[in-house]
């Protein structure tokens, strides 16, 4: 039993049929419990007041925004090397979810930043990187939509994803170089698990788990959708031939 068996679309659909309900249940359970716990039953931070509660949305979504990119990178590599269609379609499926996560991270960050930093947006390297990521997700999705042939689109977007990843790292470094240290007073040290008290830590962990599960669930559903869309395209093409 090897992992590559799931590269067979039929096998993929059959397996996800079984596991998807569990993922849905896990997502809803973790998110509902985590967010309610975070919103209603955690104390305020002595410096930031109740805004600390935004952390339960901000940190998990930011994490997933980056992880979605990583997943797309790995899926693109698998497509380029082993040419499994499911892999390319999974990369395509992850992009809209990644964009939603980036949007949540940016918006909650702006809402959080307004009272704490005094302004919603600062050209802090971290914020700028996320804006960059957002733009890149849009380009990636538009390129997928612009190309009709699925194999061509998968190849082009995979190449773009690889090159883009190199430039993402380069840009991250460039942002640090360009504006480092200006907003270090930002209380983002709460990100570090060591700095965060247990009362905040456990609900945060639950929310992170919820976002991870949400991402996996949505990507699975979307991948199934893309597999079906591809099959439909093939059937229609065959009809035209006859």
């Amino acid at each position: 039993m090897s992992l590559w068996e799931y590269a067979n679309p039929r096998k993929f659909i059959a397996t996800t049929d079984v596991v998807l309900p569990w993922f849905w249940a896990g997502t809803i359970a973790c998110l509902v419990v985590g967010l309610i716990w975070g919103f209603f039953f955690t104390p305020d931070d002595f410096r930031q007041g109740s805004t600390v509660k935004i952390i339960y949305l901000h940190v998990p979504s930011a994490l997933m925004a980056i992880n979605a990119w990583l997943m797309m990178l790995v899926a693109s590599l698998i497509w380029l090397i082993r040419r499994h269609h499911v892999s390319a379609l999974a990369a395509k499926a992850a992009a809209p979810v990644g964009i939603a996560m980036t949007l949540i991270a940016l918006l909650t960050g702006a809402i959080w930043g307004a009272p704490i930093w005094g302004k919603p947006w600062a050209w802090d390297p971290r914020l700028t990187s996320f804006l960059w990521l957002f733009l890149f997700y849009i380009g990636y999705i538009v390129l997928w939509q612009a190309l009709d042939d699925m194999d061509t689109a998968a190849d082009m977007t995979s190449i773009l994803c690889l090159v883009g990843s190199v430039f993402a790292l380069l840009s991250r470094y460039a942002f640090l170089f360009w504006n480092s240290g200006l907003h270090q007073e930002a209380s983002l040290s709460l990100d570090k698990e060591t700095n965060i008290a247990d009362v905040f830590y456990y609900p945060l962990l639950l929310c992170i788990a919820g976002f991870v599960l949400l991402f996996i669930t949505l990507v699975l559903v979307r991948t199934r959708m893309e597999i079906r869309a591809r099959r439909m395209k093939a059937l229609i093409a065959r009809e035209r031939m006859v």
Binding site: L135, I138, L143, L160, L170, Y173
Partner: peptide, 25 residues
């Protein structure tokens, strides 16, 4: 990347601009 795309000019800018960021900075 956009070689076969009709009227790909806008898409081309969208793809290339993020990649230009480090050079510009």
């Amino acid at each position: 990347l956009t070689v076969g795309i009709k009227r790909g000019g806008l898409l081309l800018s969208l793809l290339v601009l993020p990649l230009y960021v480090p050079t510009l900075i």
